[in-house]
């Protein structure tokens, strides 16, 4: 899955790229601070030395981590808060609601671990519900970058803003970066037959894109991408989905996380929508690799293909393969 160095920046994984971006960001934004709960502190020791007092490690105290971030923001600072997703979102969830949201202050929360990066660590370090939880609170933007360059672009943009932002880093990534402007972008088109309805659309979120492209390589479906599932680009989705959408939404976290937003975007038209993500009804009590977990959850190439295929009309005696074209984005 890892690309041959096609990125514009250093070819680091998302987490390492995040750490590498903080030093220039702290230089460029005098109001920026970093709040840690041990995770990342060792990697950022030199950054902390270069910016005295601006990288704060509160120890393994995640409630205090978010409370401190809220207090910093109340004095005009722009906190970047970072740890593993379960300890950033789930453990201090009321702090997200009260110490940030209710105070009407912003922060940039940057998580690692995603749904099952820590497959070998077990359930305690996995947070497939993180995006659903953050999106349930008012005023948050959720970025799910698919490439380290997208991480850098998102951080640079959000450092200069004031809002509440959740950036979900992942060990899974796409070969090349895509736009991070919050919109839904068509990545692969497929020619319509004369007078035919638009082909089904598959919306891939963040690091699911390359899996979706591989899974649909010979299917007559269009593929779109977003790195910002919340708030969802409803206008862009409506435009691509067409008047009678057949749509699959493939997300690397809890299945159906974006279902309400998609339903609202398509409320004015008859739509058939398949949501693909981490199943919400069973705890997977297995270790192994992230690829093992992706396969178990149906989030590998074969699993995604099985779900997307259900949207493709079966035509007796005709090839299922349409004429596809990769789009520059």
């Amino acid at each position: 899955m890892r690309g041959p160095g096609t990125s514009a920046g250093p070819d680091l994984d998302m987490r390492t790229r995040f750490y590498a971006e903080l030093d220039p960001l702290l230089d460029a934004h005098p109001d920026l601070d970093v709040v840690l709960a041990v995770i990342g502190a060792a990697q950022l020791a030199r950054v902390a030395d270069r910016h005295p007092g601006r990288v704060v490690d509160v120890g393994i105290r995640e409630q205090a981590m978010i409370g401190v971030a809220g207090g910093l923001a109340l004095t005009g600072r722009r906190p970047v808060v970072h740890t593993y997703a379960p300890f950033l979102v789930e453990r201090p969830y009321e702090q997200l609601k009260i110490s940030l949201g209710h105070q009407d202050v912003g922060a940039i929360l940057v998580s690692i671990g995603a749904s099952f990066d820590a497959s070998a660590a077990g359930r305690t370090h996995q947070a497939p519900a993180d995006v659903a939880l953050v999106a349930a609170l008012p005023g948050w933007t959720v970025h799910v970058p698919g490439h380290p360059d997208e991480v850098a672009a998102i951080l640079r943009a959000e450092a200069g803003r004031t809002g509440r932002v959740y950036v979900r880093l992942s060990g899974q990534r796409n070969e090349r970066p895509r736009p991070t402007d919050g919109r839904v972008h068509l990545v692969r088109d497929v020619a319509d037959g004369p007078g035919a309805a638009p082909a089904p659309l598959v919306l891939a979120v963040g690091p699911m894109l390359d899996t979706v492209l591989a899974a649909t390589a010979d299917l007559p479906v269009r593929v779109a991408y977003t790195a910002t599932p919340h708030p969802l680009d409803a206008v862009g989705l409506r435009r691509l989905a067409g008047p009678t959408p057949a749509l699959a939404v493939v997300e690397p976290y809890l299945e159906g996380t974006s279902a309400a937003a998609v339903a609202a975007a398509l409320a004015d038209r008859p739509a058939r929508v398949v949501h693909v993500g981490v199943p919400r009804d069973v705890e997977l009590r297995r270790y192994g690799s992230p690829d093992d977990h992706a396969a178990a959850h149906g989030l590998d190439v074969a699993g995604v293909r099985r779900r997307v295929e259900t949207l493709v009309p079966r035509r007796v005696g005709s090839s299922s393969s349409g004429r596809q074209s990769e789009l520059p984005t």
Partner: peptide, 22 residues
């Protein structure tokens, strides 16, 4: 200075404020 009601938020927020003002 803060919205409160749920117990246990003010002191962590105050610590962050003190860090920001120091």
């Amino acid at each position: 200075e803060i919205g409160s009601g749920s117990l246990g938020h003010g002191l962590p927020l105050a610590v962050g404020m003190a860090l920001g003002l120091r």
